[in-house]
Design a protein around this nucleic acid. Structure first.
Lengths: 185, 185
DNA sequence: ATATTATAATAACATATGTTATAAAAAATA
DNA sequence: TATTTTTTATAACATATGTTATTATAATAT
């Protein structure tokens, strides 16, 4: 009946994800994306109404990617907050362009920070809810302070102003957590 | 002998600064800038070789602006680190686009974080050097931790995830400073 | 094998942007 | 007043980008 499709939506989205990860979201154009996917611009506009629609779907993909990254990140520490920080900072170091898009850009496609953090399965919140079992009497104040701290380190890694190795980061996070903890029990 | 210039370099740079402050550096184009300055694009290229050169000079201007902002920011607290944090976070809240350009973007025109922080007169460093007189035995570790913390708050303000008022910020910074201090003396 | 039809490539169009060429305007001097 | 010279404006050119029109291609039903 009709010609078989050789370029799938998946192909295009995968190419877009790679570009977002390697070069940054803003470098994706119809033509550069087509080149990355090994086709002309036509298949893109067959599958997506326009580039904006692609951007939205790509953003969702990145949210899911962060969720999966976070879920599978090994818990090496006894303290949930330290584990959270380790995973978050490491994500920023390993995926600076994706981190920028998710957590340091203005257009978050209508999603709040918590929407993104919780991803598809609310992993972060679940984990932090356990924090009260670790001697922390004010989990929400602790969450705020720790969050500011780990977000700061992650953002500094983007500009090359933070490059501690994992064990140094663990020490830093433990010290900070204990410091905050001392003031709230 | 010749026609008098009506559009000065100053006019152009001022218009560019306004645009960088209000709309963001990346929205400056030859034509939008000309419109802001009330002229055609010609005067821009008479004064600057190209748009990149304008960008560099504008960046210097913003560095100086931060320096002046920081210098004139009232010191309300006994602790230098708290004052530093207050000024830095407030700058981010009041000038999100300029903050983004200086402290949260990759292209810093070859300047390091410390170049920018110290501005034209090294105010930040001078201030922090006094910190050792305030019971802090390890000023550089304290500087690192406080810097990560205040940078985190400032960056979160960019994405709308931090909007504490000044007195709340003071409390937060004092608590954090004291928490860190307790662990290092 | 031919006709049909969805897919993909090429080309085209509209707009945006940096930059340069050309023309108009204005100030000072002869 | 006419000439010269610098500034400014207008127009043009080159490239980049989103998007659409047109053409070519290939798979399948007849």
């Amino acid at each position: 009946m009709a010609r078989k499709e050789t370029i799938t939506k998946m192909d295009i989205l995968n190419a877009a994800f790679e570009m977002a990860s390697e070069e940054g979201f803003e470098h994706i154009t119809a033509r550069t994306l087509a080149a990355k996917a090994g086709c002309s611009t036509q298949p893109i506009f067959r599958v997506y109404r326009n580039m904006e629609e692609l951007g939205e779907e790509l953003f969702e993909q990145v949210v899911d990617y962060f969720g999966a990254y976070y879920d599978s990140f090994p818990r090496k520490n006894d303290t949930p907050f330290v584990n959270l920080g380790l995973a978050y900072i490491r994500f920023a170091q390993d995926n600076p362009k994706l981190f920028q898009l998710l957590f340091a850009s203005e257009k978050r496609h209508g999603k709040s920070l918590y929407d993104i953090l919780n991803g598809s399965n609310g992993a972060v919140v679940k984990e932090i809810n356990n924090a009260k079992f670790y001697g922390c009497t004010n989990p929400s104040a602790m969450f705020m302070k720790m969050w500011i701290f780990i977000h700061g380190a992650a953002c500094m890694s983007l500009t090359g102003d933070y490059d501690l190795k994992e064990d140094e980061t663990i020490t830093l996070l433990e010290e900070s957590y204990n410091a905050f903890l001392d003031t709230m029990r």
